[in-house]
Design a protein around this nucleic acid. Structure first.
Lengths: 215, 215
DNA sequence: CTGATACCGTACCGTACAGTACCGATTCAA
DNA sequence: TTGAATCGGTACTGTACGGTACGGTATCAG
């Protein structure tokens, strides 16, 4: 499990990745220059190309790493399917809160902007981003909701649709405003938005057996 | 009301705007080149700079025009505040449908991508985009819902919050997927999403006087 | 210790781009 | 008709960038 002593190459590679991540996030793919990355990472231009081949490949590697980094805290907060129905509101709140908090972090916003701007030129990368990022979150929540649904009768669509609806409510337009740089929502705003999302969601979907279905 | 005969300058200006709009939408601000625009519009590079000063100003003018063009069909579908409560579901469906249809059009997607990518470099433009675009749509729907709410008792938050929640449900993740180029939703998918958004919204917010409030 | 390999620094190539300059042709107002 | 302003075409400047080449130096395996 221990790393087998990082070689000199590993060290250079890591330094370049770190510097490139910062530069890409600040300036985007088109705006970033290799020279700027080298200046920040130290070392030489040739080393960058020996390790990563070309600018596009370096970019791709950074994006995939960033997606994993972004999804990690949400995955860690993944609702346990053993959670009982009584805890549904709390579970949704916790999950939604983590999701929204991560989403409006500067790094997440920069990542979204990059992938959207360059998605046309890197279609494969955009697909990977969705599948391992937002799509992954949907599936996690859907798994939880699906297990809950088999638990008792619930006049609802597929769990995946429910998950999408809930996450859409959580995002609200806070994500859009943040992406545009119009307004970074405060913690209080985020908490309130999550709270309202949970309320609206539970008004429609009430898995507790004793409750009367809406119709 | 009649235009006072377009001069030669007006014609050139319009041609440049049209060409620049196409090039910017296809390649983004950074990717687009003035030479490419001139090549498409015909004429000369000097004419572009005489009319618009610099690339950034040309870009700004195009973005503001595009926002207006994008919002127009939604504004046209603006729900009349005279609509009765009985028509609420139909009104929401019609409004949401128009909103979502516009949102996933290629031109809208290109516009969103441009503003998000360059929002850091053009913060004023990003604010204008939000205020006259998505923000405007929220306000229109909020006006309608607000008028309805005064109409009868309704245990709800501000109309603006309700409008945001509804529009978030309509966008779902279809907008995100389309922005990333992962998947352009079909008309059937869009219609279904709107239908479900209306259902979920009405499960929580029922303005008809005879209905029992949720709590 | 020795050879091979990775690294640094820098100079360099080709290209692309924003913006300017200039000239001849065209348009348009007076 | 005449003078001014605009336009087209093109050549040009300066700059920035991706990527390569190369010589000298440090690192590391055998």
């Amino acid at each position: 499990m221990q790393s087998p002593a990082p070689t000199r190459g590993d060290i250079r590679r890591a330094a370049i990745l770190e510097a490139a991540t910062e530069v890409f996030m600040e300036l985007g793919y088109a705006g970033a220059s290799i020279d700027r990355i080298v200046q920040l990472a130290g070392g030489s231009k040739g080393t960058v190309y020996r390790h990563f081949g070309c600018k596009a490949d370096l970019f791709a590697e950074i994006i995939t790493a960033l997606v994993a980094r972004m999804t990690a805290p949400i995955e860690h907060q993944r609702p346990d399917t053993a959670d009982t129905t009584q805890e549904l509101a709390a579970t949704l709140t916790r999950f939604g809160q983590t999701y929204l908090d991560v989403l409006v972090q500067p790094q997440s916003l920069a990542l979204y902007r990059m992938v959207m701007a360059e998605g046309v030129n890197f279609p494969d990368l955009a697909r990977v981003f969705y599948a391992r990022g937002p799509g992954q979150v949907v599936m996690q929540l859907a798994d939880y909701l699906g297990a809950l649904r088999g638990w008792d009768s619930l006049a609802t669509p597929e769990a995946e649709v429910m998950a999408r609806e809930f996450l859409s409510l959580v995002r609200s337009d806070l994500h859009l405003k943040a992406l545009l740089g119009v307004e970074i929502p405060s913690a209080a705003q985020r908490a309130l938005t999550v709270k309202r999302a949970v309320a609206l969601f539970l008004a429609q979907y009430q898995p507790v057996p004793g409750a009367t279905a809406a119709k």
